[in-house]
Simulated assay, not measured.
Amino acid sequence: MIEPEVFQRYAKYNAWMNGKLYDVCSTLDDDLRKRDQGAFFKSIHSTLNHILFGDRAWMGRFTGRDYEIKPIGVDLYEDFEVLRAARTEMDQDILDWTSGLGRPWLERSLTWTSGSDGKTRSQVTWQLVLHMFNHQTHHRGQLTTLFSQQGLDIGPTDMPWMPDT
């Protein structure tokens, strides 16, 4: 079992890293952001959309809130600034939600039906929250590779270098 404070730290890291990614993305023109670069979700823009999709899907399951999502692989937002605003809002939702996490909720089981394969599954919630943060990190790693292919460096990405705020 992971203590709630760990997830609060992950939420801060998530918001910090997303801010760094979106800052770099704001320096790119829309054509480059949306160009198919051979990534799993093809482009920088679509990968950003997918990370938001995943967070909305999991946070909806965790909180019962009805977040707008589309089928996996379909961009939620075409406009970069609208996507950025939605990302900022989602990061704040995650920060607020993790601040109220407790052991009883993290130790219970959650049952959901996957939108990708239609199967119903149950798993302990702390593992699912850990998965949500791992999913974000996985796809941010893909983005940093796409950035480096363009000669861009987002700077330090390791949690120990995160400024404490």
Rank of each mutant, 00 (worst) to 15 (best):
R33F: 14
R121P: 04
G118W: 12
G60Y: 01
H131S: 00
C25R: 09
F80P: 10
T125Y: 03
D93H: 05
A85Y: 11
W16Q: 04
R9F: 11
N14C: 09
S26I: 05
L95Y: 06
G100I: 01
I51P: 12
D55N: 12
L106N: 00
D117T: 00
A86I: 00
R33H: 13
Y10N: 12
P156V: 10
L143F: 04
K119C: 06
I2Y: 14
M1D: 08
Y77P: 04
S122F: 06
E68K: 02
D153H: 05
D30S: 15
G151E: 01
D117H: 04
M59W: 02
S114H: 03
K119G: 10
G19T: 11
D75G: 06
R84W: 06
A86T: 02
A86N: 06
A15V: 04
L110D: 03
D55P: 07
G54R: 07
H139E: 05
R103T: 15
L146Q: 07
N18P: 11
T137C: 02
N18Q: 11
K70A: 03
L95K: 02
L28F: 10
G100W: 03
K34M: 14
S43W: 14
P71M: 05
V24R: 08
T113S: 07
F62E: 03
D117Q: 05
S148I: 07
D31Y: 12
Q149T: 13
W126A: 05
P71Y: 08
P71G: 05
V74F: 09
R56G: 02
T144D: 01
T165A: 13
T47P: 07
W161Y: 15
L21I: 15
M132N: 00
T63D: 08
Y77H: 11
T111C: 02
L76Y: 03
G151N: 01
K12E: 12
S109L: 06
I154Q: 07
R103H: 15
F53C: 10
G141T: 07
F133N: 01
G54V: 13
W105R: 02
D158Q: 10
F40S: 11
E78R: 05
K34N: 15
H135D: 01
F41R: 09
F41P: 03
Q123F: 07
G38L: 14
A15D: 15
L143N: 04
N18G: 08
G38A: 13
R87V: 00
A85E: 14
L52M: 11
L130S: 12
P156I: 06
T165H: 12
M162I: 13
N14S: 15
T165K: 09
A85W: 11
S26V: 05
T145V: 15
S122L: 05
K119M: 08
F41N: 06
H45W: 08
S109K: 11
P160R: 10
D36Y: 12
T144N: 06
T47R: 10
T157G: 11
D93G: 03
I51K: 13
E81T: 12
E89T: 01
D91C: 00
S148G: 06
G155E: 04
G102M: 04
S109M: 08
P4T: 03
L95M: 05
P104T: 04
D158G: 08
D36M: 13
R87L: 01
T144Q: 04
F133H: 05
T111W: 00
I69F: 01
W161V: 11
L21S: 09
Q8K: 15
